[in-house]
Design a protein around this nucleic acid. Structure first.
Lengths: 187, 187
DNA sequence: GTACAGAAAGAACGTTCGTTCTACTATCGA
DNA sequence: TCGATAGTAGAACGAACGTTCTTTCTGTAC
């Protein structure tokens, strides 16, 4: 079972995602992706209209993974209050372990200023979903002013991801403490 | 008095700063900067060793502006508690009015993954200064646990800048409310 | 067996990238 | 007046960019 066992399209997306996240999008050329994915140019352009489509697919994949986290956490049972606790803990752990280079969506937005582009549309969809989902969790947990708290938690998650990247792990402590305080959880 | 009155170096930096912030760094070529600044290639390479030096100068300029804000606010007098209030208000206003495309440093970091590069060094210096300065303000204002509060305020400021860019002005309300609450100010 | 689709391989397109270079001109202090 | 300095103007560099193309191979379904 060689490294090229997976389907070309999957290798392409996997490689692109890794490189885009680690080195920035404009900083990674198509040639580089093709070489590391061991996929030829023609194959890539059969699966994706161009580089930007690859970027969109990368972000949509990222979005799907995060939605998956929430589905698993929601299905796991436990009280609503406990779910809120696990969400906060999950964000901190995710930042510390899997997103040491910051938030893929925030990073991509830095490189794509055009509000009307497809890239920004994906980012927008993800953020809207996240904000709404978090508000639902807060409401279910009987948090006073759930909308306000959810909005603040969204801010804090952005900050936690940026903070781990630029300032190191210690911000996760600040994130946990601040988030729990806002949500009215035991400190 | 034509548009090219200012010294070439100043025009260069002004133009580069505007373009880098508005469109991202890797997305803006040297040719573009030269054309809009009405400066020739040779002149640019006389003042700056290369594009990266222009990026560093852009970020250092941004850093200097923000330090200037704090100097003015500090010299203006008023109680320490009032200074803390003005700092929070200043961050919100700055995000809403002058940084609608997010934080220049966070955006630049998204495009420069190399921790050892000069770009990341400038970013690091800025963030360290900001964190320390904010801790000093909190301490002077007799905020309980000033270190913790300052750390949380840094997180919130990152989030406010990102939030205004990607979600719109309404996050400044969340920022103000959350920041004031953490700092123990009247809501 | 034949036909067809997907993938591999690689040449080539024109454009832009950052950078270097030469040559000419304007300014200003020594 | 001379010579250094800084700016203008524009050609040119090799490399990388994203994209398109033709050709060959290899399965698999009819």
């Amino acid at each position: 079972m060689s490294a090229t066992t997976a389907a070309p399209r999957d290798r392409l997306l996997e490689t692109a995602a890794t490189l885009f996240y680690a080195e920035g999008i404009k900083g990674v050329g198509v040639d580089r992706i093709l070489a590391e994915a061991k996929v030829t140019r023609a194959t890539m352009y059969r699966h994706f209209p161009g580089k930007e489509a690859l970027v969109v697919a990368y972000l949509e994949r990222e979005d799907a993974v995060i939605r998956g986290y929430f589905e698993v956490a929601g299905a796991a049972g436990g009280s609503s209050r406990n779910l809120l606790e696990r969400v906060i803990e999950g964000i901190a752990e995710d930042a510390r372990r899997y997103h040491r280079r910051g938030c893929p969506f925030i990073n991509a937005a830095a490189e794509y200023p055009d509000v009307d582009g497809e890239v920004r549309a994906v980012i927008d969809r993800h953020r809207t979903w996240f904000r709404d989902t978090l508000a639902g969790v807060c409401k279910a947990a009987d948090v006073p002013r759930p909308g306000q708290v959810a909005a603040a938690l969204v801010l804090l998650r952005d900050a936690a991801l940026v903070g781990v990247y630029l300032d190191g792990d210690r911000v996760t402590t600040t994130f946990r403490r601040t988030a729990r305080q806002l949500a009215g959880l035991a400190t």
